[in-house]
């Protein structure tokens, strides 16, 4: 068990270190998020709608698309010199590989998701108020569900001729519950309603995220097998 955790930590740390050195994915996702917000500004008539009314949906859709951008590159780093083959040939259980890769994706996407919230506060004067803590929790759960399915199906789509273009077809229908409960809870927070009202959504998000994570770590072995 200690070895198992150490192996997860090793792969996770390697991913974070490489990303820290190249900053490719974070820069791409971060720029995407800010640019989308700029375009949203011109795509919306702010005289007629207030940010609180539509922000929750926009925030979640931005996270989804930014996530697609980042998660799609999960295995590019490894493909360069066959390094993924090197990991598969080492005595690391496949579920440990999945958990490490998904957690690395979680770190990147969570940073970006918080940036999304920040951008909406900065550009559109979104009032988050006292529910900021709960909002970060809801986003963390949504992002966890996203990276669980995203990591699993990126491994699937990377092996196809269609490549990353297949990824949204595979994960968007599956992620419908994340968008529904995520935006539901978020809009309740933004409307200043008591946290207890969003409790059901948060529970469902947590259940979904955990299910997706366990499914991913179980099914990953069938995906990476040659």
């Amino acid at each position: 068990m200690r070895n198992y955790l150490k192996q997860i930590r090793t792969i996770l740390w390697k991913d974070l270190l490489v990303e820290f050195r190249t900053r490719e994915r974070l820069i791409a996702m971060g720029a995407f998020v800010v640019l989308v917000a700029i375009l949203f500004n011109y795509a919306t008539d702010w005289a007629r709608v207030s940010p609180e009314d539509i922000a929750s949906g926009l925030v979640w859709m931005t996270i989804m698309f930014a996530g697609l951008l980042g998660v799609g590159r999960t295995f590019h780093l490894e493909a360069e010199d066959g390094a993924f083959q090197g990991i598969l040939l080492s005595p690391v259980p496949k579920d440990a590989i999945f958990i490490a890769k998904a957690l690395a994706n979680f770190v990147f996407l969570y940073i970006v998701a918080l940036l999304v919230v920040g951008v909406f506060i900065f550009f559109f004067g979104l009032e988050v108020g006292g529910s900021f803590g709960m909002l970060t929790l809801v986003i963390a759960l949504g992002v966890l569900a996203f990276v669980a399915l995203g990591t699993l199906f990126t491994a699937v789509s990377t092996g196809t001729r269609m490549g990353d273009t297949l990824l949204p077809v595979l994960i968007f229908p599956l992620l419908a519950p994340v968008v529904i409960y995520g935006t539901g809870a978020t809009s309740q927070f933004l409307a200043g309603r008591p946290v207890t009202e969003a409790e059901g959504s948060i529970r469902m998000l947590a259940a979904f995220a955990l299910t997706a994570f366990f499914l991913g770590s179980w099914l990953f072995r069938f995906v990476v097998e040659d």
């Binding site: 092996g159 001729r161 599956l174 499914l215 099914l219 995906v223």
Partner: peptide, 29 residues
């Protein structure tokens, strides 16, 4: 669209299983 047909079968099976287990969540949501 998977190059190796056997891999394609396995990957598709993974899609079907995740899809089936996702149904309750989609339904409730």
């Amino acid at each position: 669209s998977t190059e190796n047909p056997e891999k394609g079968k396995r990957h598709a099976a993974v899609v079907a299983i995740v899809g089936a287990l996702d149904i309750p969540f989609i339904h409730l949501s």
